[in-house]
Design a protein around this nucleic acid. Structure first.
Length: 256
DNA sequence: AAGGGTGACAACCGCTGCACC
DNA sequence: AGGTGCAGCGGTTGTCACCCT
């Protein structure tokens, strides 16, 4: 299977993200959703590969990420789940609201593993024999089940203007995400302000409120059907995105 | 104060499964 | 059925701050 390289070796930035890059990414994803990670950096005006953008968003910029010290309960949960699931970090992280797989993995390697070694378990490599090499099939099934939320999170303007009729799970996810993007038409500055106010209101304290399910911002399901529409819908400029006056100022309040 | 060691975290890399054609 | 493009995953590496000598 031939794959296109994830990063164009020429001209794409690597390494630590700058606050400006964070602002651009956050502004774009907040406004348009993540309709296609590969294409996103181009439209967001970022000299990064899509993979890098996705990782940055998922692990750092996404709302409701819980940062800082792990509670005893969280550590116990990690240890217990690792014992049963093995290195399936995404599955473990799914049980820890606000924690990302990367964060859980790092915490395990830097802290918990040592503790774990001191009291080894017969299933220390646990779970690896319960699934295939990557455990992905089972994980997908679990994810699909977990993503069926009885209370779909509110998103951006779509939640402000015209609530969509509820539909069954998959379609619901798509229509919700579509609304996120469709509603991203450049309307007015006041709408943008409203967007952010509503955004903050909906998600409570941006960085500290409990975590919504991963489907919250996972718009990948709609990438294929929606890409063409997105292209048509938004005159997304020649590799550069601009935002209404004051939009970045709205972001400056965030502790990036 | 300097610099070496270490830990914690951010980010990259390569692989995989899935969807689509 | 097989090729392709994509998102997502886990392993690994890079970077930086802090601590100790």
């Amino acid at each position: 299977m031939v794959r296109t390289p994830c990063c164009d070796k020429s001209g794409l930035r690597k390494g630590t993200w700058t606050p400006e890059e964070d602002r651009k990414l956050m502004a774009y994803v907040t406004r348009y959703g993540c309709w296609n990670w590969r294409q996103l950096p181009k439209y967001a005006g970022l000299a990064r590969c899509g993979k890098s953008c996705r990782l940055r968003w998922m692990n750092y910029l996404r709302p409701n990420i819980k940062r800082g010290n792990y509670s005893k309960e969280e550590e116990d949960t990690i240890i217990r789940l690792h014992d049963s699931l093995g290195n399936r970090w995404s599955a473990i992280a799914a049980q820890l609201p606000g924690r990302t797989d990367n964060e859980v993995k790092n915490h395990w390697h830097t802290t918990l593993k040592k503790r774990f070694k001191q009291k080894p378990s017969s299933t220390a490599d646990g779970g690896k024999d319960q699934t295939n090499k990557r455990g992905m099939i089972r994980e997908k099934e679990e994810t699909k089940l977990n993503n069926i939320s009885p209370n779909p999170p509110l998103i951006l303007e779509s939640s402000l203007s015209s609530p969509q009729p509820a539909s069954s799970d998959q379609n619901s996810a798509i229509s919700t995400d579509n609304n996120t993007v469709v509603s991203g038409k450049l309307d007015s500055v006041s709408d943008d302000n409203a967007l952010f106010e509503a955004y903050e209101a909906d998600s409570g304290s941006f960085w500290t409120e409990p975590f919504f399910p991963d489907s919250y911002y996972m718009c990948s399901d709609m990438s294929v059907p929606f890409e063409a529409e997105a292209e048509a819908e938004f005159p997304l400029l020649n590799g550069e995105i601009t935002y209404p006056f004051g939009f970045y100022d709205q972001l400056d309040g965030f502790n990036l």
